[in-house]
Amino acid sequence: MRVFYFLLIFSALILAATLMIQNFTQDPTRQLKVMKDMSFFAMSIFCTIFAIVATANLIPKDIEDRTLYTILAKPVPRFEYLFGKYLGGMLVIFVSVTVMTILLSAFLYLRQEALLSDLQEYMQVAEQEAEQAPGAIENEGLDLARVEASSLRAQGPSWSLLAAVVAISLQAMVLGAITLCVSTFASSGLFTVVVAFVVFFVGYIEPVVVDSWRSSPEGISGFSNLLISAVGVVFPNFQSFNLVDGIVAGETLPSGW
């Protein structure tokens, strides 16, 4: 239940931050980018932390309270119990992410419309001015407004934004599953959380490190290559879920994803 209060506070914070930033930058496209950056930042942080912290204690708490015994004493296969717990955690994330996405899309749409109508007004005035002033159809503002309008249209709510949201959710799902798995044999909740974060960071950083290593002039020795493969086998590549940066910059998603 507390998650939803948290969510509420978080969205209020995003909104406040977004409104505040509008005082800093006049560039309309940038305003929308900031909105998206903030929201995706909040979403990623929420999903990552929630997927780890909330899942880490699901099973240990049931064991500690002996609720686990009453549940497993019913005709419930263990797999079902684990899967149910997992789905429960994921459902909270899914609902939160859905709410956040709807909020973001709505804000983004409203802001985009407002900015576009401002631009349209500006363009009309600029055109009138250009027609009245002799020898002055050269109007830099008109050019800029045209470019701005087309980039503004590309910055609104879109399916690719949804892809970023899906990627964030999928990442949370993988992370949640890993955490749940670790929590079944970990001796303490702290241990679980630490292991999960380590897996997360290794999975995120390893591909980048390897990449820059590979492209370095010295290259990689055979043994190091083996080591890298071993790390790759154990740790999932979380960079695969990192779409936000590209999507905010307006890249189109490759078909394979």
């Binding site: 309270d65 002996r66 609720t67 015994y69 009453t70 549940i71 419930v76």
Partner: peptide, 30 residues
């Protein structure tokens, strides 16, 4: 386990459920 009911020592159930909801939960499990 379909044939057996178990009451562990000092059990804690989910505190946020009511008595009715608790029975509902375990009934579904059963």
């Amino acid at each position: 386990r379909a044939e057996v009911g178990f009451l562990p020592e000092n059990p804690y159930f989910y505190k946020f459920l009511s008595g009715q909801e608790t029975l509902h939960f375990y009934g579904r499990l059963g």
